[in-house]
Design a protein around this nucleic acid. Structure first.
Lengths: 125, 125
DNA sequence: CTCCTTAATGAGAACTGTTATCATTGTATC
DNA sequence: GATACAATGATAACAGTTCTCATTAAGGAG
């Protein structure tokens, strides 16, 4: 037995699974309070870390601040500079792109991330 | 007249131009001391920000920490998880890739960044 | 069901990287 | 050389995150 399924961990996980957004640790705290779940800040951080480590949730860094989402599948991100929202998009690079880098540089790629910065459709209106 | 060419700014700039590495603000400080240049920490931060803002130097975020390099041209990064080094590589995505995203999502791309995480050639030996 | 080990928690202190404050300095223009 | 104000240095403040440590409670063993 290694991990324990605590109600706090489940509460944190449920928040992310229940929302289709990218949340900071603070925003997860807010949601927990909104749902009358009492979880300490350190515990929220610990569980976000734990869940991400175990591929249960996704994580992005925006300006050095961690954002978590309920989708652990690899995907790219569009970041709107007007409204700050982050949109998920399918990975744009494929196996061949990666193989090219690996062959050319002798670098073993384990993961790769692409982020697009710009203005989303809504904000252009 | 808007900006002034101070010796501190030049010192910070020269450090980055003189080294082919990605440095944190602290590492820039170290280099300055090594070269007997006296520049305050806040000034280092201000100048790194200023130089980047004016496209004089490049900037990457690694785990939320800013790294600066002397090359302001857009390029992608390989990050070795063994030695921590960051290697520059040419942008892998091209105009067509970007246009596809823009057309499909109605998102105007201003900048885009790709980072490859893995193990570099040296560390595999 | 009770006992026991230890993973996990809560509260707050500590830490890290960065930015803000503010009096002082020095660069560039007149 | 006088002047204006951008830039500096020292330090306080800040934000996000991690650490500490005493306490709690999962969940496996008996």
């Amino acid at each position: 037995m290694t991990y324990r399924n605590t109600k706090q961990r489940k509460d944190v996980y449920d928040v992310l699974k229940g929302l289709d957004r990218h949340l900071t640790a603070d925003q997860v705290m807010e949601e927990l309070k909104k749902n009358d779940r009492q979880v300490g800040l350190a515990t929220v951080y610990r569980n976000l870390h734990h869940l991400h480590e175990n591929n249960m949730i996704g994580k992005v860094l925006k300006d050095g601040v961690a954002l978590y989402d309920g989708n652990p599948e690899p995907h790219d991100h569009l970041h709107c500079r007007m409204c700050g929202k982050i949109f998920d998009v399918p990975k744009i690079l494929n196996e061949e792109n990666i193989k090219a880098i690996e062959d050319e540089k002798g670098f073993s790629v384990e993961e790769y991330f692409t982020t697009f910065e710009g203005v989303c459709n809504d904000c252009k209106k």
